[in-house]
Design a binder for these strands. Sequence first.
DNA 1: CAGAGCATGTAACACGTTACATGATTAG
DNA 2: CTAATCATGTAACGTGTTACATGCTCTG
Lengths: 171, 171
Amino acid sequence: MSGYDIKSLFKGLSWLIDSPSYGSLYPTLHSLLDDGLATVNVEPNNSKPPRKLYEITEAGRRELRTWLQELSSTQFSIKAFVRHLILADSLSNDELKTRLTHRRTQIVDYLSTPTPLEESDGNPPQELGQRLVHDYSTAIAEAELRWLDAKLSALTQTAGEGQDHGLYSSS
Amino acid sequence: MSGYDIKSLFKGLSWLIDSPSYGSLYPTLHSLLDDGLATVNVEPNNSKPPRKLYEITEAGRRELRTWLQELSSTQFSIKAFVRHLILADSLSNDELKTRLTHRRTQIVDYLSTPTPLEESDGNPPQELGQRLVHDYSTAIAEAELRWLDAKLSALTQTAGEGQDHGLYSSS
DNA sequence: CAGAGCATGTAACACGTTACATGATTAG
DNA sequence: CTAATCATGTAACGTGTTACATGCTCTG
């Protein structure tokens, strides 16, 4: 993909996670080249600035794998999970299944932790906000749980299909 | 609340949105005092550092309102919406309803935009990640829509109840 | 008796955004 | 004809994190 393509992808997801600015995106791409983690293929684009199509190298893929491993073992955020999904192409069927299962565990844990419930006394000084957010957070978590279950069952039924991980077969 | 309390609140929400570090939280609280947007009430805490309980001033509440207005009219992100919910105490019944309705509109718009569907040709070079994320994003958006509808109907049924906005009456 | 939680705060550093620079093409 | 989209890039600036400093208390 080109820097522009990457930016577009994130822009479409910006309601869920932050989208990087070109000011950080382009320099990052340049440093990937310097480190040999990616290669470019410059494609002329009639009098417009040429499209620079980046591709990950083997070394890059190795780095990516360890980075994703780190991510999933230390971060629970939606941001981290979405990053994982975006990069699902780099994972094998089994790896993806492992990650989704791990995520499922985290969500279940989150949903089962009994709300801290702060403020002893007669409790409501002013905490409508807290309750609303907690409520919202729970609703989102439950939705994610259902989504994970659906994907996991699709992934398990068609065990070793390779290509599309059995997720989007027969439209 | 104290700086510590605020941090705890965000920590509990860190799976949804970023939690600020103390390194930015405390200085921010200090600058609110300088600007007269908040006041402190220092509460001794037997030999532990005293708890500094901050409270918003009238001027602060005015600033907050315009800030929230700005937020909701320019940002569509979950981050912005969660901020709004946390601060729901500062909004009147009608204001809250307006914001939720506005959010609902945004979600509906998002769900109705026909997926860009990039890559003309025979389309699938490698875009499992894109599809997965889109799928996930849609599932979350639909869950939020249902949540909004539930809250909005609760809010409308008990029109002008004041106190708890009619949201959490008779448990 | 060690580690987690309570509780506040500062300074160096890294990071990312904003604003700028450039310019053709296509859609309304 | 104007605005949006395509397409890349740099430098100054602002903001936020990381690491450090301090010290009591409760839990396992």
